[in-house]
Design a protein around this nucleic acid. Structure first.
Length: 563
RNA sequence: GUCGCAAUAGCUCAGCUGGAUAGAGCAACGGUCUUCUAAACCGUAGGUCGAGGGUUCGAAUCUCUCUUGCGACACCA
């Protein structure tokens, strides 16, 4: 039930001549400090129209309204503070969580609409770095949040599997590479060739010509070129999938750039037919002056396609295949301008889904303030970070819970969870200067902190034995439990806001808030005491466990029952 | 140069559509395990919310100017 509405309804009869019901609802706020009640109505706004001091208005108001539905209603200066009835509130909230279980917070706002998500997008023959973590993990979480809001997400790993770099790679491989090395450790060796190419081509510019030739061959369907490309791609994907498995991320499609190769001519024809393509300095562009944007370059002066050409083809393909309710791109913030251009071109083309295209940008990951780059060798391998974190988790388990069964499995859940949570708890747009030490902290506001709260709750439930919680009378009047109950009640709303803002960090912050409230309750109250409220308390513990686990799931983080 | 994003405690960050004394976590210092997992809890200390104007009863939040940092600005992705 909507308690804010209850407050508004209580106030409305006494304010009919000054404020509309909607205005009242809007003005109601939630005090930061629970000693000031659960909801508050500020009387400032009425001072002018009523020509009275706000304090006086508040005092008059409290005398007029019906306060029977509340624990109490207090006047505090210009504020009217409403205190909810704890017993009925707790029975209401806990009842909902218990009957809905993991579905608590689920809504059907999305009506099952398809939402393709362009995410992760590693480049073939290049390692997956911390930079890719963001797109992967943000995209994955947004997919879960979409489902929770009734949408049908389609996670598309838009592989960078085409382009002139393959010409370079083929040249480098033929010159310096061999099959066994690539099979043994594909990424490391392919990168080695690639880096070597970039060193050598400074003194031997003819290498660039050869690379162009090989890419041309690849485009023309030359057998050897295609064979090598396909092999590099397969080996790279194998290596990528090992990392995705570790992260627990699955994709629905892997339609990389190559997939759209044969779909670009249709786009170009369509642009021409619609009269959007213009020549400029030998190249073909779409003018975007009315959007206050630079022209979008569609074809180079040599007739070759560009990234945007493929992206248009992608959007058209998605339109026809999925009829998307939204079309999402989880790509770094450095491409914000580019996505404005893409959206503008698609709008010009009259593509229906153009208006629901959202670029979901995120801040850059740097090391010592500098951008990562494969070429320069300044790179942090995601796989290495994950393994370090898992090792750290193993050490913690050895020190704190040496008798734990399936240690390795839990270490993986905790170690990987720490990295994912560490990334998602920050607002997307914040840039992150990578620091391994910070990533491996398992204390304070971290993934393991939330997991630990969940594990403690599960531990209590195990100790409690077989209690039929569904039928329990879930009235809790204990003030120590109050914060936890209120946070539990916020979950459904948090899910909506997180989607509206495309912000997984809203969920992560929520999870911390709930874990913190519960840990505090846990430290101050003995839950397994045999008294009349024991069943109610256990219901609370079960509800917390359920919602914590569900929050973590929405982030792509696992919640072990013991750790 | 133009456009965009950012600036809050020593460090990393929260602060919802403007509201009651600006909050956490690390780090520092001091407490709490014979009792549900101390990966926890409690306390102390720490801030001209980058600077200056404006709107308002009321601004970290909205607006303008400036400063600083990062990024993007047609033949890369």
């Amino acid at each position: 039930m909507d308690y804010k509405q209850l407050v508004a309804d209580t106030l409305a009869p006494s304010l009919t001549d000054v404020l509309s019901a909607e205005d009242i609802y809007q003005k109601i706020e939630r005090p930061k400090d629970s000693s000031k009640g659960d909801y508050a109505f500020p009387a400032f706004t009425l001072a002018k129209t009523m020509k009275k001091a706000p304090q006086q208005i508040a005092t008059d108001l409290v005398a007029k309204i019906d306060t029977t539905k509340f624990d109490k209603v207090e006047v505090a200066g210009p504020y009217l503070n409403f205190f909810l009835d704890k017993s009925s509130f707790s029975a209401d909230v806990l009842g909902q969580v218990m009957t809905q279980g993991a579905d608590y917070g689920q809504n059907e706002d999305g009506n099952g609409g398809n939402v393709p998500i362009d995410m992760s997008s590693p480049n073939i023959a290049k390692p997956i770095s911390m930079g890719h973590l963001r797109s992967t993990v943000i995209g994955n979480s947004i997919a879960e949040i979409l489902k929770k809001n009734g949408y049908n997400p389609i996670k598309d790993n838009h592989l960078g599997d085409w382009g002139t770099q393959f010409g370079k790679l083929i040249v480098a491989y033929l010159k310096w590479g061999n099959e066994e090395d690539v099979k043994k450790d594909p990424i490391t060796n392919l990168v080695k060739y690639y880096v070597k190419f970039h060193k050598e081509d400074k003194e031997h510019p003819e290498l660039d010509d050869q690379a162009r030739e090989w890419f041309k061959k690849l485009e023309d369907g030359d057998e050897e070129a295609h064979h090598l490309w396909s092999w590099f791609r397969d080996e790279s994907l194998k290596a990528f999938n090992a990392i995705y498995d570790k992260l627990g991320v699955k994709f629905d499609t892997y339609n990389g750039e190559a997939f759209y190769n044969d779909k670009m001519q249709a786009v170009i024809d369509d642009l021409k037919a619609k009269g959007l393509l213009k020549e400029s300095q030998g190249a073909q562009v779409v003018d975007l002056e009315k959007y206050d944007l630079n022209p979008a370059l569609i074809l180079k002066s040599d007739g070759a396609s560009l990234y945007i050409t493929r992206d248009i083809a992608t959007a058209v393909y998605r339109e026809n295949t999925y009829h998307p309710a939204m079309n999402l791109y989880v790509v770094g913030s450095e491409q914000m301008y580019y996505f404005q251009q893409l959206k503008a071109v698609l709008t010009e083309m009259g593509l229906p889904s153009a208006k629901n295209l959202h670029h979901i940008p995120f801040g850059l990951i740097t090391v010592d303030g500098k951008k990562l780059s494969t070429r320069s060798g300044r790179i942090i391998l995601l796989d290495v970070v994950l393994d370090d974190s898992i090792d750290m988790a193993k050490k913690q388990i050895a020190a704190k819970n040496p008798d734990l069964p399936n240690k390795d499995e839990v270490a993986k859940q905790v170690g990987v969870g720490a990295i994912i949570f560490g990334d998602l708890k920050n607002e997307r747009m914040n840039s992150i200067d990578f620091n391994l030490e910070d990533q491996l902290k398992f204390e304070g506001e971290t993934g393991p902190y939330v997991q630990y709260a969940h594990a403690r709750a599960e531990s209590i439930l195990r100790k409690a034995g077989d209690v039929s919680l569904l039928d329990a009378d879930a009235k809790i009047a204990d003030p120590e439990a109050w914060d936890t109950l209120k946070v539990l009640a916020d979950f459904p709303d948090t899910i909506k806001v997180a989607l509206k803002e495309f912000e997984p960090s809203d969920i992560a912050k929520y999870a911390i808030r709930l874990a913190k409230a519960f840990n505090k309750y846990y430290a101050h109250s003995k839950i397994l005491t045999d008294d009349s409220e024991k069943a109610a308390r256990l219901t609370l513990v079960k509800s917390v466990s359920t919602v914590l686990k569900e929050s973590l799931r929405l982030l792509g983080v696992e919640a072990p029952d013991e750790m």
